Simulated assay, not measured.
Amino acid sequence: MSNDEELFFGADDEPVKDESESSSVEDAAASDKASAEEPEKEEAVSEDEDEEDEDEEEESSAGSEATNELEARYMSLYAEYDNYRRRTQKEKDNLYADAIASVTKEFLTLVDNLDRAVDGAKKSDENSLEKIIQGMELLGRQAQDTLTKIGVEEITAERGTKFDPNLHDAMMHIDDEELGEQEIAMVFAKGYKYKDRVIRHAQVQVAN
Rank of each mutant, 00 (worst) to 15 (best):
Glu5Leu: 11
Glu6Gln: 12
Glu6Ser: 13
Glu6Tyr: 08
Leu7Phe: 03
Leu7Met: 07
Phe8Asn: 06
Phe8Leu: 14
Phe9Arg: 05
Ala11Lys: 09
Asp12Cys: 06
Asp13Thr: 08
Pro15Asp: 02
Val16Thr: 07
Val16Cys: 01
Lys17Ser: 04
Glu19Asn: 06
Glu21Leu: 10
Ser22Arg: 11
Ser22Phe: 01
Ser24Leu: 13
Glu26Arg: 13
Ala29His: 04
Ala29Glu: 05
Ala30Gln: 07
Ala30Ser: 07
Lys33Val: 02
Lys33Asp: 03
Ala34Arg: 03
Ala34Thr: 02
Ala36Thr: 01
Pro39Arg: 03
Pro39Cys: 02
Glu40Lys: 14
Lys41Thr: 03
Lys41Arg: 10
Glu42Ser: 13
Glu43Gly: 09
Ala44Val: 03
Ala44Arg: 11
Ala44Phe: 01
Ala44Ile: 01
Val45His: 06
Val45Lys: 15
Val45Glu: 07
Ser46Arg: 10
Ser46Met: 02
Glu47Val: 05
Glu47Pro: 02
Asp48Lys: 13
Asp50Val: 04
Glu51Val: 11
Glu51Asp: 14
Glu51Pro: 01
Glu52Thr: 06
Glu52Asp: 08
Glu52Gln: 09
Asp53Ser: 12
Glu54Asp: 15
Glu56Met: 12
Glu57Asp: 15
Glu57Phe: 11
Glu58Ala: 14
Glu58His: 11
Ser60Ala: 15
Gly63Trp: 04
Gly63Gln: 13
Gly63Thr: 07
Gly63Lys: 14
Ser64Gln: 14
Ser64Gly: 12
Asn68Ala: 12
Asn68Pro: 00
Glu69Leu: 11
Leu70Cys: 06
Glu71Tyr: 08
Glu71Lys: 13
Ala72Leu: 07
Ala72Phe: 04
Arg73His: 01
Tyr74Cys: 04
Leu77Trp: 00
Leu77Phe: 00
Tyr78Trp: 03
Tyr78Met: 07
Glu80Ser: 10
Tyr81Phe: 06
Tyr81Asn: 09
Asp82Phe: 03
Asp82Ile: 04
Tyr84Val: 01
Tyr84Ser: 09
Tyr84Lys: 07
Arg85Glu: 00
Arg85Phe: 01
Arg85Ala: 03
Arg86Ala: 10
Arg87Ile: 00
Lys90Thr: 12
Lys90Leu: 06
Lys92Ala: 10
Asp93Ser: 12
Tyr96Glu: 09
Ala97Pro: 02
Ala99Pro: 01
Ala99Asn: 13
Ala101Tyr: 05
Ala101Thr: 04
Ser102Trp: 08
Ser102Glu: 10
Val103Arg: 07
Val103Leu: 06
Lys105Tyr: 11
Glu106His: 11
Phe107Cys: 10
Leu108Ala: 14
Leu108Gly: 03
Thr109Asn: 14
Leu110Ala: 13
Asp112Ile: 11
Asn113Val: 10
Asn113Pro: 04
Leu114Gly: 12
Leu114Ala: 15
Asp115Gln: 15
Asp115Ser: 14
Asp115Trp: 10
Asp115Tyr: 14
Arg116Trp: 07
Arg116Lys: 15
Arg116Tyr: 08
Val118Ser: 14
Ala121Met: 11
Lys122Ala: 08
Lys122Glu: 05
Lys122Ile: 09
Lys123Ile: 02
Lys123Trp: 03
Lys123Glu: 14
Ser124Leu: 02
Glu126Met: 08
Asn127Lys: 13
Ser128Met: 04
Ser128Thr: 03
Leu129Lys: 12
Leu129Cys: 06
Glu130Thr: 15
Glu130Cys: 06
Lys131Ser: 12
Gln134Met: 11
Met136Asp: 07
Met136Phe: 00
Glu137Asp: 09
Leu138Arg: 09
Leu139Val: 06
Gly140Leu: 04
